[in-house]
Amino acid sequence: MKNKEKHIGFILFVVFAVLPFTLAFGYALLYSFGVIGIVNEGFTLKFWKEVFTSSTLGVSFIYSSVIALIGVILSVSLALWIVLKYRESFGNKYLSFIIYMPLAVPGIVSAFFTYQLFAQSGFFARLSYQLNWIETAQQFPDLVNDNWAIGIIITFISLLTPFFILLYLNIYKDERIEELSQLSRALGANKKQIALKVSLPIMLKKSWVLIVLYFIFLLGAYEVPLILGQESPQMLSVLILRELKQFDLTKISEGYVMAVLYTVVIMSATVFIFSRKKLRNNAY
């Protein structure tokens, strides 16, 4: 009786969590080798060769990684700086609610908002015009759909920083960094030493798994680069989707090669996080 219950739970876990992922991966894998697919004629390595000889995926990988890395590093640094310098202010009744508000904004709205502000016909361009800084919309620096992905990075920062501020405020409290800092001061450390040798190491150690996790999320971000990205190079999810949804059916298999490669990288990263830290009590 009890064993039966155990099995049902396990089977449901497999059906809901493991099976869809396995099916998706298996399907992409078979498609990438030409085993399935409307216009494919059987097993072939040509799509893999095609993807590896073209630089599109490699460039997109590097491009996405750099954007995600910059986004995460800037957000974490900004959050750390704000928490270490201004944490007392968050005790304020209004601010303690206001700081939560950005979490109600989805990525797609954030991207739309960035577009509204920074586009060449956007709010800041209008202000610049009124202030006689520019005479035509084209003179305003291209900050969305631009080469340097500035719009994407700004949006990522606006999405991540509030989250990390809240995280670090909690860690600061939970890890009793205030008390530890006072202790360090009593032992003769100055403000800078306390920050560098006590507060920062503790906060980073407590949050590194989340930092890596958010890097991976940004790596696979879709709607933000879809709205704010440029034609080429594109971020991974946008590129893969473009390849999978294109009209030239003979090219779809290459999209699946990319999907497989992306998935393998993500899986390896996850296994890496797990091997470094046993995620036993992950959510708390």
């Binding site: 992922f21 399907y27 879709y222 991974l236 999810s237 989707l241 999907a259 992306y262 993500i266």
Partner: peptide
Amino acid sequence: ISPVVFGAC
């Protein structure tokens, strides 16, 4: 994993 890639597959 990116939900959109997951969904596409």
